[in-house]
């Protein structure tokens, strides 16, 4: 019963953060601010959802593997955001130089 409540809370907050990330992606005015919304909310949303999965399946291979997926997503997501921002920044600078 308590486990079910924990899973419900985790899934609910994960859905909330995924929704906020998507809304930010649509509402924000330029690329960098969109990246703020999407990166942070997606990272936490994915973490909470997979944590709910790990709690649901108890001590099994699925929970160990979903923890590995969480670690992987939490390392790669900020890195990917940084690389996109860097690419955008440098290509903008190049265009300014050409003018």
């Amino acid at each position: 019963m308590i486990v079910n409540a924990i899973i419900l809370i985790l899934i609910g907050s994960s859905a909330f953060f995924f929704g906020v990330g998507t809304l930010g992606l649509i509402r924000m005015p330029d690329t960098y601010t969109r990246m703020h919304a999407s990166t942070k909310c997606d990272t936490l949303g994915a973490g909470l959802a997979l944590l709910a999965l790990a709690v649901y399946s108890g001590f099994s291979i699925i929970s160990v593997k979903s923890i590995i997926v969480i670690a992987f997503i939490w390392i790669t997501n900020p890195t990917a955001a940084h690389i996109i921002a860097k690419a955008k920044y440098h290509s903008e600078k190049k265009e300014e130089l050409q003018k």
Partner: peptide
């Protein structure tokens, strides 16, 4: 760099 990206309101660019 990654921690700055994940902390409130900041994003590492370069």
């Amino acid at each position: 760099g990654n921690s700055v990206t994940l902390t409130p309101g900041t994003l590492t660019v370069d």
